[in-house]
């Protein structure tokens, strides 16, 4: 089933949302036949859906609140510019891709390419706050350009691949080849990743003032701190295969 592409979903009445035409295979049917919608326009809209195939939920969302009780498919909140989108369960690939503002909270796990760049796009996530309480798949933050991603659980391989700028925080274990072809941006890790590309260099131990600001920001968004207190971190710089102005900060 895809795509679920209503504009300004959060400002619609539940009845209007239920009437949105969705594709299932080569036919179409109203959304209301696939899941329940409750809530009020301007308030919180709740969708009860447990399909991992319902793509593009909250695509282009600009304001309001949308809650998915259950799980979601790929491209959750794609191109979102404002508002709050919450998913109780897991989501598929490309959650928050092309997102430029607003907040997404995924209580479960996220698929590959969290906040990543869709086919042909030069930029992934462009702004906003993307928070995963579970784990993320591979290539979280691929081509991320701005904004903050927090993954409380683990992340797969190639986290921050081709990152352009922005901040990706992984509190659990990160996988192999973190930061591959990172041009700029910050990948913040609570512990050593499984591996880094050979084209990252150590720049030693540091205390960075900006991390305090980051912690405060995370706290204000109900997310855990990147590092407790004003801890000393180990900084890696790279990826020198390309621009080389990115950084990986690892709690020492």
């Amino acid at each position: 089933m895809s795509p679920f592409v209503p504009q300004r979903l959060a400002s619609m009445r539940p009845r209007q949302i239920a009437a949105i035409t969705l594709h299932q295979g080569n036919r179409t049917l109203p959304a209301g036949e696939l899941f329940d919608v409750t809530g009020s326009p301007g308030g919180r809209i709740v969708i009860q859906s447990d399909s991992e195939l319902l793509d593009n939920i909250g695509m282009g969302m600009a304001d309001g609140e949308l809650m998915v009780e259950g799980q979601a498919g790929g491209y959750l909140g794609r191109g979102m510019s404002g508002g709050f989108l919450q998913v109780a369960g897991a989501t598929g690939i490309f959650a928050g891709s092309a997102m430029s503002g607003g907040r997404i909270l995924i209580e479960g796990n996220a698929g590959d390419l969290l906040g990543g760049a869709a086919a042909g796009e030069r930029q992934g996530m462009r702004g906003g706050f993307l928070h995963v309480r579970g784990s993320a798949g591979d290539r979280a933050g691929d081509r991320q350009r701005r904004g903050i991603i927090v993954v409380e659980g683990n992340a797969g391989d190639y986290a921050a691949s081709r990152m352009v700028a922005g901040t990706l925080i992984i509190l659990g274990q990160a996988g192999h080849q973190c930061g591959l072809d990172m041009r700029r941006g910050s990948l913040i890790l609570n512990s050593k990743p499984k591996s880094l590309p050979a084209t990252f260099n150590v720049s030693g131990g540091h205390q960075l003032t900006f991390l305090t600001l980051l912690n405060q920001y995370l706290e204000s968004h109900s997310a855990p701190w990147a590092f407790p207190g004003n801890s000393r971190i180990r900084r890696w710089v790279g990826d020198l295969a390309c621009d080389g102005r990115g950084e990986i900060l690892i709690q020492a």
């Binding site: 080849q177 591959l180 072809d181 050979a198 084209t199 260099n201 990826d239 020198l240 295969a241 080389g244």
Partner: peptide, 22 residues
């Protein structure tokens, strides 16, 4: 293979990397 390619790009771009890591 990724590291070999990356190392070559870095070396040809005169960026300071340590090929010894390979």
């Amino acid at each position: 293979w990724a590291d070999v390619a990356g190392m070559l790009r870095a070396r040809l771009g005169n960026r300071p990397v340590d090929s010894g890591r390979l």
